[in-house]
Design a protein around this nucleic acid. Structure first.
Lengths: 145, 145
DNA sequence: CTACATGCAAATTGTTTGCATAGTT
DNA sequence: AACTATGCAAACAATTTGCATGTAG
């Protein structure tokens, strides 16, 4: 995953938004994240950028569909870079790690269900909770994403 | 769905918790709800019970697995009575209605995916977003659960 | 009577907003 | 220069907690 920042900035500008230093910093921080991250993560990774600006930038990126909000079962919220491929999440209850998987067959079945209920499906989210491979193997690891 | 309150109170007591007036009121309010509800809904339905107590009671009921938290995509949170049957949600982006569906085949596929990732699955949640049948038919209904 | 539960208000936490200033184009 | 974005602090909303009092068992 290349910094992607340049491409993204271009896209921002194309839509009438400005390529500012703060946005650059936030985008750089995001591009370094391999897994879903919190607003707090970004604030730490981009010191000097105000919290409010991070929130505003996240909202902007959501509107541009460059990032998407991921509300976890415990009430916390993370964000992740939108990838073109649709996917779902495996959330470890012990260490908090969030990983992904995808399965076209599963998606197809979901569409079928929506249709059965006469529901006009826009999007969906599927989260699996439990223990990741590492945690179920090492029962005494410390909690840390 | 009978008031269920008596049965529930018995269960509470069995676990060393007390069957107080406030809990009774909250349980009565919950038992009347047909669809997922908010804490606010309960506060309104059980006036005289403090907000803090409603929150405390909800947490207690969650621990007892009598109720489960349902974090919506827009950041809101609802609760619903735990039914024995596992199910998923259809959430209408227009009117906010939350309905349910279930599909054993879908659940089986989910288990398969978890196994493939060496993930020890405890639970999962699946939410479909879009327009419910009513809203996609009547494009100008008002927003209201 | 004793321990647990409640209400209220204060404390947190997470997020949004108003406004004067700094930064982009 | 014109207009947008930022930072900070205040405003908010949702949820939690401390504590004196009420109450179920």
């Amino acid at each position: 995953m290349p910094p992607a920042t340049d491409e993204t900035l271009a896209r921002l500008e194309g839509l009438g938004h400005r390529a500012t230093g703060s946005r650059r910093a936030v985008l750089d921080a995001i591009s370094l994240k391999h897994a879903p991250f919190t607003v707090e993560d970004i604030c730490e990774a981009a010191p000097g950028v105000g919290r409010a600006t991070v929130f505003r930038t996240m909202k902007l990126l959501q509107d541009l569909e460059l990032v998407c909000r991921l509300p976890l079962g415990d009430g916390g919220v993370r964000y992740e870079v939108s990838r073109s491929e649709h996917h779902h999440h495996l959330i470890c209850s012990r260490c908090g790690a969030v990983t992904e998987f995808s399965d076209p067959e599963l998606d197809a079945l979901i569409v079928t269900n929506a249709r059965r209920e006469a529901f006009r499906l826009d999007s969906h989210s599927l989260e699996l909770y439990g223990l990741c491979a590492a945690c179920s193997a090492a029962p005494n690891a410390l909690r840390n994403p």
